[in-house]
């Protein structure tokens, strides 16, 4: 069948209409994307010097509490933690294996049990004689790297994408951690 001039007009007009419709749909869908404010919130920079040794700074990243920790380099020799069997992050490892040789690192401060915010116990307690994270809601216990050692949490704390740039820790851009959920 030979294409007539009217067929051409149909296709041309229909095609332009379709392109136009897509051109309209794209920005409409894009307006539903995160706003510029939450995009700037998606990158946080912390000066390494501002975190005290064996201390923790709390800030926020993408609206979630962010724990920045600096641990003494001999912490793994001084203390041993009995990590639970099922404690594996999305890379299939312990957080500790990935984070322990970094001067500072960031964890998402949300308990993987039911979403409470754990507390930092740098001096340990009568039960756990080592620095650890303790979730006050249902007694979840984590190592300083976020691996679960006790209580109900099913898996380690999430680790956001982060990298070290000069004397700053940049959270939100992949570096030594891409993202562990």
């Amino acid at each position: 069948m030979e294409a007539s001039r009217r067929d051409f007009i149909h296709v041309a007009l229909g095609g332009m209409g379709a392109v136009g419709a897509l051109g309209v749909l794209y920005p409409i869908l894009k307006t539903l994307a995160p706003s510029a404010a939450s995009v700037t919130e998606a990158k946080v920079e912390i000066a390494i010097d501002s975190v005290p040794e064996l201390g923790m700074r709390v800030t926020s990243w993408k609206g979630k509490p962010l724990f920045i920790l600096k641990l003494p380099s001999d912490i793994t020799q001084k203390y041993t933690y009995k990590v639970k069997k099922e404690s594996k992050n999305s890379a299939g490892k312990l957080n500790q294996e990935i984070l322990r040789d970094k001067p500072v690192f960031a964890l998402i401060g949300v308990c993987t049990h039911l979403g409470c915010i754990p507390l930092w116990k740098p001096k340990g307690s009568s039960d756990v004689k080592a620095p650890y994270l303790h979730c006050p809601c249902h007694g979840g216990l984590y190592t300083p790297w976020g691996d679960n050692i006790g209580g109900p949490p099913p898996r380690p704390l999430f680790v956001p994408p982060q990298k070290i740039e000069g004397n700053k820790l940049v959270v939100g851009e992949p570096g030594f951690v891409k993202e562990l959920v």
């Binding site: 920005p27 894009k30 307006t31």
Partner: peptide
């Protein structure tokens, strides 16, 4: 601000 700067394509609409 919100519409012109923060929302993707807000300015367009």
């Amino acid at each position: 601000y919100t519409i012109m700067k923060e929302i993707s394509f807000g300015w367009l609409f």
